[in-house]
């Protein structure tokens, strides 16, 4: 199952490159949303690969809570742009 994780890292490198290159803040936010969901799915894959229940719980918590912080950040940035 190693090739799965390597392909996932390749898919993860695309939004990282996008963040490095693009200057628009909303494009960066999009890439951040993509990276956040990709990393938590990768944590889930690693947990199944190693048959480790504890890492799996952490992955699910990050998946469900990390997005809330992302929405908060989106609203803060919107307020900054309008002021």
């Amino acid at each position: 199952m190693n090739w799965i994780l390597i392909a996932m890292v390749l898919a993860l490198l695309i939004p990282i490159y996008e963040v490095w290159k693009d200057e628009n803040i909303w494009q960066k936010m999009l890439a951040f949303a993509s990276i956040a969901s990709k990393t938590s799915v990768m944590i889930l894959v690693v947990s199944v690969l190693r048959d480790d229940w504890m890492i799996g719980v952490v992955g699910v918590i990050i998946l469900s809570v990390g997005n809330a912080g992302l929405m908060l950040l989106a609203h803060v940035i919107k307020r900054m742009n309008t002021l």
């Binding site: 963040v19 803040i25 951040f32 990276i35 990390g66 992302l70 950040l73 940035i77």
Partner: peptide, 14 residues
């Protein structure tokens, strides 16, 4: 600094 905030979030996820 605003772009650095977003990248700080990416660093946290990674």
């Amino acid at each position: 600094p605003y772009h650095a905030l977003v990248i700080r979030g990416i660093l946290g996820a990674v």
